[in-house]
Design a protein around this nucleic acid. Sequence first.
RNA 1: CCGGGUGUGGCGCAGUUGGUAGCGCGCGUGCUUUGGGAGCACGAUGCCGCAGGUUCGAGUCCUGCCACUCGGACCA
Length: 479
Amino acid sequence: MSKQIKLKEITSMEEDFGRWFTDICVKAKLIDYSGIKGFFILRPYGYALWERIMGELDKKFKETSHENVSMPLLIPESLLQKEKDHVEGFAPECAWVTIGGSEELPERLCIRPTSETLFCQHWANIVSSWRDLPCLYNQWCSVLRWEKTTRPFLRGREFLWQEGHTIHETGEEAEEETIRMLNIYADLCENILAMPVIKGRKTDKEKFAGAVDTYTIECMMHDKKALQSGTSHYFGDGFSRAFDVKFQDRENKEAYPHQTSWGMSTRIIGGIIMTHGDNNGLILPPNIAPHQLVIVPIAAHKGGVVEKAAELEKRLKKADIRVKSDYSDNSPGWKFSEWEMMGVPLRLEIGPRDIEENACVLARRDTGEKIKLGLNNLEEEVQKVLADIQNNLYNKALKNRDENSFEANSLEELKAIIEENEGGFVKTMWCGDRECEEKVKELTGISSRCIPFEQENLGESCAICGKKAEMSIIWGLAY
RNA sequence: CCGGGUGUGGCGCAGUUGGUAGCGCGCGUGCUUUGGGAGCACGAUGCCGCAGGUUCGAGUCCUGCCACUCGGACCA
């Protein structure tokens, strides 16, 4: 039908991807800047998005028997230092509280960058028997990491997340838990956020400080860079030993529980933006959109329009569609652009002409297509279109990933592909040596994303050193 | 942390050799409009990022700092 106007307020992603991203964050009213570097304000629309993600995850956590708790904000330095790798990993980006009231504190307190240490300390107090296990805990909170470079959603000094922490009788049980939670993240990404994921294990170089194994889901963004969208860690009994968490097992012997932790943060919102957004703004998959459909009344002053709009709103809400009506006195064109910028999947226009025909106009955010629609089966039709948008967004993202996924048999080839394509995923065989990984990083600037669960045999030798290959691995530029 | 860019009404910007802070949009009120960012009229809004310094006088010159932004390094 009519042409889409170009919104000058948003820098095009071809011109400058970074600016395009921050423009959307601001123009879609997701965030505002606070006065302190790296601290962002989540505005109602941004928070609504996070609330929906929380709702989806929290439901799944509870279905799998997890309980929510709340841990302190502050960690005494001595507690943080009990696990060597962990403190080395986090110390460089800790912020410290040194004064309480007007008194200098006897020991400085770290503002939590993550809460493994607090959970361990607590468990040491309350766990004594195998009957106390497993402990399946989660907390929704914010954490603080003093990052040097900050960007909305992708890297804040303070960010909202959930951190799950569990302890189990056996390593097998803990490993199962680690994978179970990774799968919950993957399901959220694929089914709700329409983001295809690659599941895999991090290399020793890339894994979490103090973990035995770190598992990850990796998504590809519009600019062909990878975003680690959720992680799940298996700790073995290392933390338990360091923090003296012990229990008496079924044979009446002293044992150390095996531990996991897993997290997903508001960073995933950055992922949604960079997976689905376009040059007119945000595009939200219907399954996560705070408003799935916005009703824009046309010539609302004319008789019957407001009443009709209200009637349709009521009908659609009854059918469990999340509807927003815009009765503001902005012009229709202004509203169209505004809600497009905000990424609402569907717009319903209703005006005097439609009322005469017992119809309305539906406009899709993903394709720009306008559909004239009779009102009789409105609810069903809207459901159908929403489902189609959800599918379309997933398929588009998958296509982008497939078109930018490659295989390489040598370091030169790997480098050439990444340079020529300006990003993407490249799969190679790998011997498993850290040296090879570091060599790739040094020579090409790219890092390993993961050792995918879905292993492939692309040859017998490591693409970097030529020695015998042990596994396939995926490389890429990362956020 | 290194390098580039930017800070002036809410937003985008202009501001000459230093001499009374301006424009557009938005905002408020009223009327007319309404199917892709509507029109007219009247009106309100400024620690010129912050702190020092030079000067009779600083948005403008000097020093330091802060924030935003892009790229790089670093990063679980």
